[in-house]
Design a protein around this nucleic acid. Structure first.
Lengths: 111, 111
DNA sequence: GTCACGTTTAGCCATATGGCTAATTAATGA
DNA sequence: TCATTAATTAGCCATATGGCTAAACGTGAC
C-alpha cells in the first residue's frame, strides 16, 4: 500500500484542466509556439504560461526555445502510464465480474 | 474552443490522488465499507471521507448507507469518458505521424 | 542603436485541496 | 438502557491552484 506513484499524480493532475487538455489537442496536430497556443484562450499570457509549465512538468510536452520563440511539442508516450493504469483497472473489475455469475453481472449492469 | 467538459475535469482530478486511486483499486475487487476502505490508509477518518466524497462526486463510485455502515462500490463505466479522451488523442497523433514520412517518424522516436 | 515582439518574472489575490481534532449522530449489541 | 461502533459535521490550518497586472528580459528587425 501507500505505493506513491508521483508520476500518475502529475499526469492526472495535468489532464484535469480544460485549458491544458485543449493545448494537448492542439499539439496533437503538430508543434506550436507559446503564443500560438495561447491565442484561442481568453487568458493573460502569464496565466497561460503556467499551464505550459504544468504540462512540461508532467512530461506531456517538451519545449525548445529558439531565439525569442518557445516551441512546444507533444510527448505522446507520456500517456502510457495513464493508459496502463486504466487498462489494469479494466482488467481488475472485468476479472471480478467474470467470477460473478451472469445474474450478478446483470444486476451490476443497472449502472 | 473553451468547450467546458466538466466531466473530464472531475474525473481526472479524482484520479490524481494516490489515496483515491488505491480506493478504486480496492473496490475493483468488490464493494467495501468506508471503514474497511480507510483501514490501510494512515489518515484520520474525516480526511478519508473527503476522498470518498470526491470519488462519488466524480461518479466513479456509488455508496449506499444501510444502518450505520456506508457501503461503496465501483461504477466502472465512469472510466469511459477518460478512456474515450485518451483514445481520441492516440488517434490524433497517430494520424499525424502517419502523415509524416518514416524519416520524420524516426526523428520523433528520439523521445 | 533602438524599438517591437514573444516570453518570463515578480508579486498579488481568491478559492480549492488535503490534512487535522473535537464533537455529534445514529444504529447495534449486551 | 446504555456503551460501543461507524460515520459525519464543524471548524481549523497550511499549501496548491489558477487567475491577474506591471515590469523586465532577450532577440530580431530596421
Amino acid at each position: 500500500m501507500a505505493k506513491r506513484d508521483a508520476d500518475l499524480d502529475l499526469l492526472f493532475q495535468a489532464l484535469s484542466d480544460p485549458t491544458r487538455r485543449a493545448v494537448l489537442d492542439r499539439l496533437a496536430q503538430g508543434p506550436a509556439s507559446v503564443g500560438e497556443l495561447a491565442a484561442p484562450h481568453d487568458m493573460a499570457l502569464p496565466s497561460f504560461t503556467k499551464h505550459i509549465g504544468v504540462l512540461e512538468a508532467a512530461g506531456l510536452i517538451r519545449t525548445v526555445k529558439k531565439g525569442r520563440v518557445r516551441t512546444c511539442h507533444l510527448v505522446p508516450k507520456r500517456y502510457q502510464p495513464v493508459d496502463d493504469w486504466l487498462s489494469r483497472h479494466r482488467k481488475l473489475w472485468e476479472r471480478r465480474t467474470d467470477r460473478l455469475g451472469s445474474l450478478a453481472q446483470s444486476l451490476y449492469r443497472k449502472d
